[in-house]
Nucleic acid binder design. Structure first.
Lengths: 194, 194
DNA sequence: CTTAGCTCGTACGGGAATATACGAGTTAAC
DNA sequence: GTTAACTCGTATATTCCCGTACGAGCTAAG
C-alpha cells in the first residue's frame, strides 16, 4: 500500500515541497489559490496537478501531513501523573500546532466531504478526551458537563487564542499562559461540588 | 443625515426585505450569493443592486442591522446587582444573538476593510467588558488575566457553542446552561488567590 | 545511454459570481 | 394625472479560479 509504481526521487521532493507550501499558505489563508501554493513551492502549476488531481486532494494531503506532524509531537508527551500538570504539558505543545493550521482546518471543512475532517482529526481530540476523563475520575476536573463539550470548548479557546495572536491583539509569548489558565479554569470542578 | 432625497415607501420595504433576507442567509452561510439573497427577499437582482452598489455594502448593512437588533435586546438587560447573576442574564440573551449571526460576522470579515467589523462590534464587547471589570472590583471575577482576553475568550465560547449546536453535536436546549457554566468557570477567581 | 518518469510553459475551456448597461413596465407621491 | 421613483428581465462584460490538453525539454534510474 506504500507505492504501486515506484516514484522517482525528484517527484518525492516536489510533493514534499508542495505539501509544505500548502500547509504554510493554507494555514494563514484558507482561500489560498493553487497557483499561489505552486509558486510558493517553487514549482510549476502543472507539476502540482501532476501529483494532486484537484484542490480537495491537495488540501487533504496538507491536513493529513499537519496532523501526522502533530501526532508525532503530542504522542511524545507524558500524560501520566497529576492530570492538571499533564494538561498543562499537553496544552503547551498543542497551542502552536493549532495556531499553525487553524485555517487549514477551515479550508478542509469547505472542500472535504462532511465529517471527513472530524474523522481525520480524531486522534488529538481523543487524547484530550482521555486525559479529561481520567482527571474526572480523580476529581481533578469537573464532571458535571458533557465531556464532548469540554473537549470542544478547549479547542475553541485554543483556536481563539491563535486568532488573537495572529491579529496582533495578543503577544505570542503570553498565549501559552493564557491558554493554560483558561482551560484549567474551564475544567476545574465548580465550587458547590456535592 | 437621514435622507437626502426622500425615498418611496416601496423602496423602504424592499430594502427591509433585502436586509432581512441577507441576515438570514448570511447567518447560515457566509458565502451566500447575491442572487440567492435577492431571491429569498422576493426581489429581482437588479432591485437589490439599485439599493446596494456591491456585496460589501450589503453585508455591512446586514451586520449593522443585526447589531442594532442585538443592542436593543441587550440594553434592556439589568446588569446591576451581583455580577455573576448579571453575567448569567447577559449570556442567556447573548448566545442566541451570536448563534443567529455568527457566520454573518465571518462574511463581514472577508469583505469589509480590516478592523471595520471590530469597530461595529464595539458596543456589545464594551458591555461585557464593563460587567467583567465591575465583577473584578468586587472580587467576583478573576483579575489575573488581561480583560481583553477574558472578553474575547467568552466570545469564542459563545461562538463555539453556536457552532456545535448548528452541527447537531449539541442540543439547542442545553446550550445556554453550558455557556453560562463555562463562562462562569472562565471568570471565577483561581483557587490560589493571594 | 536509453527509457520512463517528471517538469513546466502556454493555451484553452468552463463555471461561478460580481457588476454594468439598457430599457420597458409599474407604482407611489404630490 | 403627471412625474419621478422604483422594479426587474435580459444581455453582456469582467474577473477569478479550477481543471484539461498538448507538447517540448529535462533528469533520475536501470
Amino acid at each position: 500500500m506504500t507505492t504501486r509504481t515506484r516514484r522517482r526521487a525528484d517527484a518525492e521532493r516536489s510533493i514534499a515541497r508542495i505539501v509544505a507550501a500548502a500547509r504554510e499558505l493554507l494555514g494563514r489563508d484558507p482561500a489560498a489559490t493553487i497557483d499561489e501554493i505552486a509558486a510558493a513551492a517553487g514549482v510549476g502549476r502543472m507539476t502540482l496537478y501532476g501529483h494532486f488531481p484537484n484542490r480537495a486532494e491537495l488540501v487533504e494531503a496538507a491536513l493529513v501531513d499537519a496532523l501526522a506532524d502533530g501526532e508525532r509531537t503530542l504522542s511524545a508527551i507524558d500524560l501520566a501523573g497529576d492530570p492538571a500538570a499533564a494538561l498543562d504539558r499537553l496544552l503547551a505543545s498543542s497551542w502552536s500546532l493549532v495556531a499553525e493550521s487553524s485555517s487549514l482546518l477551515a479550508a478542509a471543512q469547505e472542500v472535504l466531504p462532511p465529517g471527513r475532517v472530524r474523522q481525520l482529526h480524531g486522534a488529538p481530540a481523543a487524547r484530550l478526551e482521555e486525559l479529561i476523563r481520567r482527571g474526572q475520575g480523580s476529581g481533578a476536573f469537573r464532571a458535571d458537563l458533557p465531556i464532548g463539550w469540554l473537549v470542544s470548548a478547549s479547542h475553541y479557546l485554543l483556536k481563539g487564542a491563535a486568532e488573537e495572536a495572529r491579529a496582533g491583539r495578543l503577544d505570542a509569548a503570553s498565549v501559552p499562559g493564557l491558554v493554560t489558565a483558561s482551560v484549567r479554569a474551564l475544567l476545574r470542578p465548580p465550587a458547590d461540588a456535592r
